[in-house]
């Protein structure tokens, strides 16, 4: 089953709405609550990343009986050094973003922790593509 959600850059008041929708779907599909939690935590982080850094993006969700594959693509500045961004505490978030309680530099590491597979590709000044795969079994 496929679902698509739009993510609006800069709109923190709506950050989390796509992940909440996915959560609702997974609950209805009787997925193990612990796996739902991992998935939603990683999606929420990814969604906030788009809101905080990119102009716009979307979340494409593909759910099968054994796994969920989520692709989050954005149009934005991209990540120049992915290895650096993967380090805990590393953040390029602006002071304004940090004031809102975001941008602690835990985003990507937290996504990695809460997903079974994570693939990330990025082009500077074009955008970032993030793939998160979690298995239900």
């Amino acid at each position: 089953m496929e679902f698509k959600f739009e993510i609006e850059g800069g709109n923190f008041s709506k950050a989390g709405s796509a992940s909440s929708e996915v959560k609702k779907i997974l609950k209805q599909l009787n997925v193990n609550p612990k796996i739902i939690k991992r998935t939603v935590v990683s999606l929420y982080e990814a969604e906030v990343n788009v809101v905080a850094h990119a102009f716009e993006g979307n979340m494409n969700v593909d759910i099968d009986t054994d796994k969920i594959v989520v692709k989050i693509e954005d149009r934005g500045p991209g990540i120049p050094d992915i290895d650096q961004a993967m380090q805990e505490g590393y953040s390029t978030a602006t002071p304004q973003v940090r004031e809102m309680g975001f941008g602690a530099g835990m985003g990507l590491p937290n996504i990695k922790r809460n997903s079974d597979q994570m693939n990330i590709t990025s082009k500077v000044d074009v955008g970032t593509e993030l793939e998160i795969i979690n298995y239900f079994g």
């Binding site: 089953m1 609702k24 779907i25 609950k27 209805q28 599909l29 009787n30 609550p33 009986t65 239900f136």
Partner: peptide, 20 residues
């Protein structure tokens, strides 16, 4: 113990069909 009222079916295949 959890007792979710949200799941459409205990069998995920069936739940997906129902969701569609």
């Amino acid at each position: 113990e959890p007792r979710s009222i949200l799941s459409l079916d205990s069998d995920m295949m069936v739940a997906m069909k129902k969701m569609k």
